[in-house]
């Protein structure tokens, strides 16, 4: 399968999403890779600042993750958010499981699944996310895509299905610096922008991974930019 066929498939997929996205919130987040490494343990910090014409929303998440088998990793998060009234506080808790379906390079592409369960801190609002994770290598580049289906319900929100799509096309230039392009779709949102990531290895399996991306919303009438940053320490 050549890259033109892949672009055709991707185009169809994006069209499908563009017709039916109605998710709320900011879809700009980490693009998940299907790969799981046995014995992996990690601490993670994610930061996202979304600036629109009307407001600035700042969100941070702290997590601990651990591989339970060579195919399954589980991660627990606490998240905080500064809202439009400049109040910053604990926003919610989240438990996430990522399962590697295929060995790297075994098939034409690598596949995984993601399941997340989230509860809002001070209200009885819940969200469950399931998704398919995809990655394909093209010599020194990797294309990663996440197709996510979200269901949310609770005391102060309506029951709702949402879809999100994330794409990252990364050039594996060198371990420390790997440039990429990222695309996101969500409710009334299509965003694209540059990203950079890398890994610095310490002794043994200890390593620090970083990601930085600046995503511009394409479909809004006003300004809509998101800066996202993530640090992950594996040990």
């Amino acid at each position: 399968m050549n890259i033109l066929r892949l672009i055709f498939i991707l185009g169809l997929s994006l069209l499908g999403f563009a017709e039916q996205v109605w998710a709320d919130g900011n879809p700009v987040d980490k693009v998940y890779h299907p790969r799981v490494v046995a014995n992996e343990r990690k601490f993670e910090w994610r930061f996202a600042s979304r600036q629109t014409s009307e407001e600035n929303v700042l969100a941070q998440r702290f997590a601990y993750g651990q591989a339970l088998t060579e195919y399954l990793i589980v991660e627990a998060y606490i998240s905080g958010e500064r809202d439009e009234t400049d109040d910053y506080g604990l926003q919610g808790y989240e438990l996430e499981a990522r399962y590697m379906l295929t060995e790297q390079g075994q098939y034409w592409a690598d596949w995984g699944v993601l399941v997340e369960f989230e509860k809002q801190h001070d209200e009885g609002n819940y969200e469950i996310t399931t998704g398919l994770l995809f990655e394909k290598e093209f010599t020194h580049t990797s294309l990663t895509m996440n197709a996510l289906l979200v269901y949310e319900w609770g005391d102060s929100i309506d029951k709702e299905y949402e879809t999100e799509f994330r794409l990252q096309y990364r050039y594996r230039f060198m371990p420390e610096v790997q440039p990429a392009i990222e695309i996101y779709t969500g409710e009334d949102f299509v965003g694209i922008g540059p990203a950079f990531m890398g890994v610095h290895r310490y002794e043994g399996i200890k390593q620090l991974k970083w990601e930085l991306a600046f995503i511009s919303g394409l479909n809004g009438k006003g300004k809509d930019h998101t800066l996202r940053f993530a640090l992950e320490y594996d040990f």
């Binding site: 997929s13 999403f17 034409w108 592409a109 398919l132 197709a147 289906l149 879809t163």
Partner: peptide, 13 residues
């Protein structure tokens, strides 16, 4: 969403 899964399944198989 359905289209995406069909596309991905085709690519897989």
């Amino acid at each position: 969403m359905f289209r995406l899964f069909i596309s991905l399944l085709l690519a897989f198989f």
